[in-house]
């Protein structure tokens, strides 16, 4: 019993870190532009498939780069895709919230069908960046090295993001726009460039998340839905627009999922987090750290 609790604690920490990666990009885009980006799951999928194409010699051509380079490529490709999504579509329609999020749904579905067509519907396996497992004697559990790597990469990314947003002028302008768009504009912040940068960063984080999720779970044309649902849940619980809230909520949900998995089996996975979500929505609709920045 004690052992399984320990293993839940460790595995939960690893999984939660990856969930945080999934959610932060989503929440940043919402905080800055008020855009609900339902194509976020699609971006994660792009990350996973970009990694697949780059590292596997059997998919497209014979090029196969080392997996670490593949991670970099996947991140860059997803960041660019996200930037293009903003510059090529969302920028022109963001005045209407409903049209915007319906359009991003259509983009996500379009991506799903194209990937389905290109790579087939069956799940693909990604080459692990770090192979093997770590055996924890005291706990009696094995941890995939990918989990540990995901944990480390996630916290590095969160640390860099924190530094960028709170210590540099460019980053602080992002924060300023999410507090008050008009106020930021009056102080000379270039709204377009702030939004483009936000989408670029969100895309990069989604790409990272995509590689880890794709390796540890599945890489298939249906993989966009679950991360999107997780991002939803985490962001609502943490408070829409709040980075700190997303990280805290990611850990809450990560642990909850790990506990259900360990003690109730796979059948109920995901149901409890949804119940927690409903409870938070009803009792504290602004989320745990909602509107950490004033925003109206």
């Amino acid at each position: 019993m004690l052992e399984s609790i320990l293993s839940v604690l460790i595995l939960g920490a690893m999984m939660s870190a990856i969930y945080a990666l999934v959610a932060i990009g989503f929440t940043m885009i919402f905080g800055v532009g008020g855009v609900l980006n339902l194509a976020h799951g699609g971006l994660i999928m792009i990350g996973a498939y970009a990694f697949l194409v780059a590292t596997s010699s059997s998919v497209v051509g014979a090029i196969a780069v080392p997996t670490v380079l593949g991670l970099v490529i996947a991140t860059l490709v997803t960041a660019v895709a996200s930037y293009v999504l903003y510059g090529g579509l969302v920028r022109y329609i963001e005045d209407n919230v409903v049209i915007t999020f319906l359009s991003t749904v259509m983009v996500a579905l379009l991506l799903t069908e194209l990937i389905h067509h290109e790579f087939g519907s069956s799940p693909r396996t990604l080459l692990p960046i770090a192979d093997g497992t770590l055996h924890l004697q005291g706990v009696g559990t094995r941890i995939n090295y990918m989990y540990i790597l995901g944990f480390v990469v996630s916290w590095i990314a969160i640390g860099l993001l924190w530094y960028y947003v709170s210590r540099t002028d460019e980053g602080r302008s992002i924060l300023a726009v999410s507090m008050s768009e008009r106020g930021a504009q009056l102080t000379g912040v270039d709204l377009e460039s702030v939004k483009s940068r936000t989408w670029l960063i969100a895309g990069a984080l989604a790409g990272l998340a995509g590689v880890f999720l794709g390796t540890l779970q599945t890489t298939s044309p249906e993989m966009w839905l679950n991360p999107l649902a997780i991002a939803f849940i985490i962001v609502v619980i943490g408070g829409i627009g709040s980075i700190k809230g997303s990280v805290v909520a990611a850990y809450l949900i990560g642990y909850l999922e790990q506990f259900t998995l360990e003690f109730l089996g796979t059948g109920y996975q995901g149901i409890f987090s949804l119940v927690v979500l409903v409870a938070v929505l009803l009792l504290k609709p602004e989320g745990l750290f909602g509107r950490e920045f004033a925003h109206e």
Binding site: G34, E94, D95, N96
Partner: peptide, 12 residues
């Protein structure tokens, strides 16, 4: 929600 931006007239 600050959806009303006066910058950038929409293409549509």
């Amino acid at each position: 929600m600050s959806s009303e931006t006066d910058t950038g007239r929409s293409i549509s």
